[in-house]
Design a protein around this nucleic acid. Structure first.
Length: 355
DNA sequence: TACCTTTCATTTAACGGTGG
DNA sequence: CCACCGTTAAATGAAAGGTA
């Protein structure tokens, strides 16, 4: 009679599966800064640990309440419905497959992001979805070797991670084309800080510029000061940026169209214009990006670019789920990209240029 | 239960291969 | 040669198991 004992996995089992020594496993899983290991090795160890359901001693001491696996979603802010809606759609999909979801809000702050990235290096975690382009790209890439990873972001060729993306340049072009077709000759683009770290904002402006350039139209760009954003916990920052800039720009009645870098900024613009007695869309048109859910409400009725929240969330989780269940066999070699074509949603906030 | 044994985990120090 | 990556070996701890 042969007994197949279902022994609890030991660090030795992990070591054998990962093809390294036992002490290496211990050092890697306990984040020892002592010796250095290549990201590939670290990845193999984490993957092996996850496959065997191995827990380090510290993890054994604080057992997780449930045996359900969970994933993390890293998001820059929950104040903007774009992200909260996206996170919810991911949660819905995850729940369908019995995955728990842990949401990490970075407040657009590199330090907060870094703290979370450090927390997330644990073999107990089954996957990570970023709803934006993280600051600490190198760290994210390293982490992606040990944990399945998907990024919901902007088109970026240099990335070698699975992505779900929307072409922001195209979105900007689409929006500008819409306004030009309506006969607008002078328009303003209002944005929160445009940095290399926030590609979508940059690309939206770029798209607008591309389209305006060949025509005789004039484009005024207003960008919030980066220092102004130091108050990172301010939830209505985007709204305020739109509000303040539009309030001063409204003195110039020759500006007949305003583009907010996203819907939240556009809301601020709408309020400022109303305060200045500039009627929308008769005297000026306003539009945004993302199509967050309040934008369809009757009193707002904002013309915007659809961001496909539900679809992106669904696809992001599906990609992740595929990697998680497939194991690592193919995950290293194949990179998936899902791209959505931006779609213009014309509502009541835009109209023909007044004569 | 009290005591001893075994097993596994963690940590440190020192060693060795390898590629620029 | 040196920096990097990983190993071996050994000591210490901590928990689990066995037994009277």
């Amino acid at each position: 009679m042969v007994y197949v004992k279902m022994n609890k996995p030991t660090s030795n089992d992990v070591a054998r599966l990962a093809g390294v020594s036992q002490s290496a496993v211990s050092m890697i899983l306990n984040n020892k800064p002592n010796v250095s290991f290549s990201p590939e090795t670290i990845g193999r160890v984490y993957t092996a640990a996850r496959q065997l359901n191995y827990r380090t001693k510290k993890q054994q001491k604080v057992p997780m309440g449930t045996t359900d696996p969970f994933i993390a979603v890293v998001s820059p802010t929950m104040a903007n419905p774009y992200y909260s809606t996206l996170v919810q759609s991911i949660e819905n999909e995850a729940a369908r497959e019995s995955y728990g979801v842990l949401v990490c809000d970075t407040y657009h702050d590199p330090h907060t992001e870094n703290r979370y990235l450090s927390l997330l290096s644990t073999s107990a975690l089954h996957g990570i979805i970023y709803t934006f382009m993280p600051f600490h790209w190198e760290k994210v890439k390293t982490l992606s070797l040990s944990v399945p990873t998907v990024v919901v972001g902007d088109k970026n060729q240099s990335i070698d991670i699975d992505t779900v993306e929307l072409n922001s340049t195209e979105a900007g072009e689409l929006m500008a084309r819409h306004l030009l077709d309506l006969g607008h000759k002078k328009m303003a683009f209002i944005s929160t800080p445009l940095s290399e770290n926030n590609l979508p904002r940059f690309r939206r402006l770029e798209g607008v510029r591309n389209e305006v350039r060949s025509t005789g139209a004039e484009l005024i760009v207003r960008e919030a000061d980066r220092n102004l954003v130091s108050d990172k916990y301010n939830p209505d920052l985007e709204y305020k940026v739109g509000y303040e800039f539009a309030k001063s720009l409204a003195k110039d009645s020759s500006i007949t169209a305003y583009i907010g870098v996203n819907d939240m900024v556009a809301y601020g613009i709408l309020d400022a214009l109303e305060e200045r007695n500039v009627r929308v869309p008769d005297a000026a048109s306003v539009c945004g990006f993302d199509n967050i859910f309040p934008s369809r409400f009757h009193r707002v009725a904002l013309t915007t670019i659809d961001a496909f929240h539900m679809e992106k969330g669904r696809d992001a989780f599906e990609l992740l789920h595929r990697k998680m269940t497939l194991g690592e066999q193919n995950s290293q070699t194949s990179i998936f990209r899902i791209e959505y074509k931006p779609t213009l949603l014309t509502r009541e906030s835009t109209g023909p240029c007044p004569s």
